[in-house]
Structure formats: C-alpha cells, structure tokens
C-alpha cells in the first residue's frame, strides 16, 4: 500500500468530495426545527413554561409546617 501524500487534494476522495448524505441533512435540519420549537416552548417569555411553575404544578400541596 502506497501512502497518501500530505496534500489536501490527495487526502480527499474526489468523486464524493461534495456529497452531503441525505439522511444526515434530514438530521441536521430536523434538529434545527426541533430546537426552534423547544426554544419557544421552554422559554418563560415565549411559551410561558417556567421551572418554578412546573414545580408548583407537579408537587402535591405541601402540608403547612
């Protein structure tokens, strides 16, 4: 096996150099879309959710101490 010389040209496969696999593109833009939705839903000033509000809802009414 002859070794690849240290040039960018030789280190890259020419036939496929510009390919972005479709499945990967779906993942890429899917995560951006998911991120936009999640950002909206879990930002108090946008979707209304808040850590403290979620806690108050989830925790059973505490007996007064």
């Amino acid at each position: 096996m002859s070794e690849i010389p240290d040039t960018a040209e030789a280190m890259e496969n020419k036939e496929t150099a510009h390919r972005l696999p479709l499945g990967w593109l779906v993942l890429y833009f899917g995560l951006i879309a998911w991120g936009a939705a999640y950002l909206w839903l879990y930002t108090p000033a946008l979707g209304g959710w808040s850590q403290a509000g979620a806690y108050d809802q989830a925790a059973p009414a505490q007996p007064s101490r």
Partner: peptide, 17 residues
C-alpha cells in the same frame, strides 16, 4: 481526519461534509 486516511490509504469521503 489526518491519521485515518494515512493509515488506511483511503481518502476522506466528503470534504464538504
């Protein structure tokens, strides 16, 4: 990215990726 092509002799699949 450097040593995989160097050891295997296989150029990296996609420069753009």
């Amino acid at each position: 990215y450097y040593f995989l092509p160097k050891t295997t002799g296989l150029p990296i699949y996609s420069h753009r990726l």
